[in-house]
Write a protein that binds this DNA or RNA. Structure first.
Lengths: 239, 239
DNA sequence: GCGGTTAGTTGAACGTGTTCAAATTTCGCT
DNA sequence: AGCGAAATTTGAACACGTTCAACTAACCGC
């Protein structure tokens, strides 16, 4: 409910059709020529619409990227959910989900740099860190909730609560690496995933030890604070 | 030597003067009106040069930012070096340097977002992570070498060698937080610095323990790999 | 079906970063 | 001083993202 926000309200079947057409055309062209090389004029023309019409549905060229997030996220979920059923331990569940994410993004590697650039801009409405209400982000974190839920190992409540967010941030880090990774078949990224998933798993075990309670509390408080700070950014415009 | 690279070679006193004038004018205007609001035309006009002339000295508007890095870095060093003389333990040395960095950047908080945005773009020539040869980055890491050098505590060689780079990355993280931080007087950032410096210090102690050797080796190898991957990005254009 | 309101569509115009061929100035040398 | 080459300077032109006032089509209540 609260998840849907600024999404341009389409009020007419015809309008919906136009919107979809423009969007698909744009994504096709991004894939084919890259983001920078694809002009709004070209998108409009190929979609059989006018330039202004494209801007009626998408506030800016960047906003088209939001739709891209959504599309690839849906694909990712479609692959990940069935795959998760085969695993019940944290390590292999996390490994599965992260590997499949990269798998999903693979075709877009060439212009992924742009995505990250806009995502990292604190001012951008697309920054997934800054926008708590961003539906794609919420859905994305939900997937990691599922990863955690299906785990049998004993994890303290406080850590368990924060874990989906932490794993989501971790997977964003992997994506960042992948964007930079020029190795053949992204081997480096896969190796990194293997290693770091292992480490993450161990750290969760370690952090679940009763011994670690004070340190864990401390660290989780810090994480909370970081999260708050990131999310305050957009509020500044609401005054 | 190898540190100076693409820097536009100025071959004439007159040229040098023009270059400096344009640069200073640009930085002034960035401070006054922000980066986006300052147009190349406005810079050129105020500097008494032509538009094309500005582009003769600076390949793009973004390249003017490189000069900004340089300027603030110089200021930072000027503050940090004397201050470091008063401390000989890791914790207070690191605290000093990082606090002073934020101090130095303070006047530019309003448009710092732009800086980070361009810095985070893997394609950008300004990405400090991707460009090993970037003189500003080298100088910046050197400062953290000094932080480590002046420490009396015993740190294993392998860790000591990697530490300046790690601390530099840590301080980039702090800057990232600060950019997002809208709290009055950046209190949140200073609190974060207090806490994390403490943690970093403890982790260095922990990691220096002979017990930790295997884990440390493992982690350092990972760091090395991450670093390599980041720096390979620019090479791809050299073919 | 009609009139009015809302949704959708158009393309010209604007501002901006960037490029470039041509003009001008400075330099190094005799 | 004078000359050719190199460095610097110019501003018009281009391409692109974005805006907007005007126009047209669809919808809704009667």
């Amino acid at each position: 409910m609260a998840a849907m926000r600024k999404k341009k309200a389409v009020k007419t079947p015809k309008g919906d059709q136009t919107r979809t057409l423009i969007l698909n055309t744009a994504l096709d062209m991004f894939l084919e020529r890259g983001y920078e090389q694809t002009t709004m004029r070209a998108i409009a023309e190929k979609a059989g619409a006018s330039l202004g019409n494209a801007y009626y549905y998408f506030r800016s060229k960047e906003h088209l990227i939001q739709a891209f997030y959504q599309t690839t996220h849906d694909q990712h979920v479609a692959l990940a959910l069935p795959a998760l059923e085969k695993h019940d331990d944290m390590k292999s569940r996390l490994l599965t989900v992260v590997q499949l994410k990269i798998e999903t993004l693979k075709p877009y590697h060439q212009f992924a740099g742009v995505l990250f650039k806009t995502a990292a801009d604190p001012q951008s409405p697309l920054n997934p860190f800054a926008d708590e209400a961003n539906p794609v982000r919420q859905a994305s974190i939900q997937l990691f909730e599922k990863v955690v839920e299906g785990t049998k190992s004993r994890i303290p409540k406080d850590l368990r609560a924060e874990l989906p967010y932490l794993l989501w941030v971790y997977h964003m880090g992997i994506i960042l690496f992948w964007i930079h990774d020029r190795s053949p078949k992204h081997r480096r990224t896969y190796r990194l995933i293997d290693r770091t998933v292992e480490m993450v798993d161990r750290m969760i075990q370690l952090g679940s030890n009763p011994f670690m309670r004070p340190l864990r509390k401390h660290a989780l408080a810090l994480v909370d604070e970081l999260r708050d700070a990131a999310e305050d950014v957009l509020d500044a415009d609401d005054n």
